[in-house]
């Protein structure tokens, strides 16, 4: 059901953990839908480069893999570049996700934004294009008639 890249990032997740005194921390998702992601960012205030990024995730295989891939994609990037890491970019980097797992990639994007928002608030700065993150991403799935 999962691509080899997803399985690789699930089995050997990159950047799991916490950053003490992180520049920004964001937690999104809820236990009801079964996915919670927390992203820690270490940002250089002058260059605005993300020096390090760590995650912790409660969720399915896809949730772990998208978190892992998202951290890889933002490390070494400036805040502005990191803003361009969309859920599509995360999915593409993982060679795709099953349709029911697309929300995991949305959650990963939102977790990064949430951590950036936390950083911006702490520093009293504005990040272009960054909106106050939603605490949760949920798709409305309509049950088919049977």
């Amino acid at each position: 059901m999962y691509s080899e890249k997803v399985m690789d990032h699930f089995q050997n997740p990159r950047n799991v953990g916490e950053i003490e005194g992180a520049s920004g921390v964001g937690t999104v998702g809820n236990a009801k839908c079964g996915d919670i992601m927390r992203i820690y960012l270490d940002i250089d205030d002058e260059t605005r480069v993300i020096k390090d990024c760590k995650f912790k995730t409660f969720g399915c295989g896809a949730a772990v893999a998208t978190s892992s891939m998202a951290t890889e994609l933002v490390i070494g990037k400036t805040i502005e570049e990191a803003m361009k890491v969309t859920n599509k970019a995360v999915m593409e980097a993982l060679d795709g996700l099953p349709p029911v797992k697309v929300h995991c990639s949305l959650l990963a994007e939102e977790a990064i934004h949430s951590a950036l928002w936390d950083y911006a608030e702490k520093k009293g700065i504005q990040i272009e294009g960054l909106e106050k993150p939603k605490s949760d991403i949920s798709e409305h799935e309509e049950d088919e008639e049977y």
């Binding site: 919670i36 927390r38 912790k56 995730t57």
Partner: peptide, 8 residues
């Protein structure tokens, strides 16, 4: 659990 924000 070591990867879980809930456990943390």
């Amino acid at each position: 659990r070591s990867m879980s924000p809930l456990y943390e």
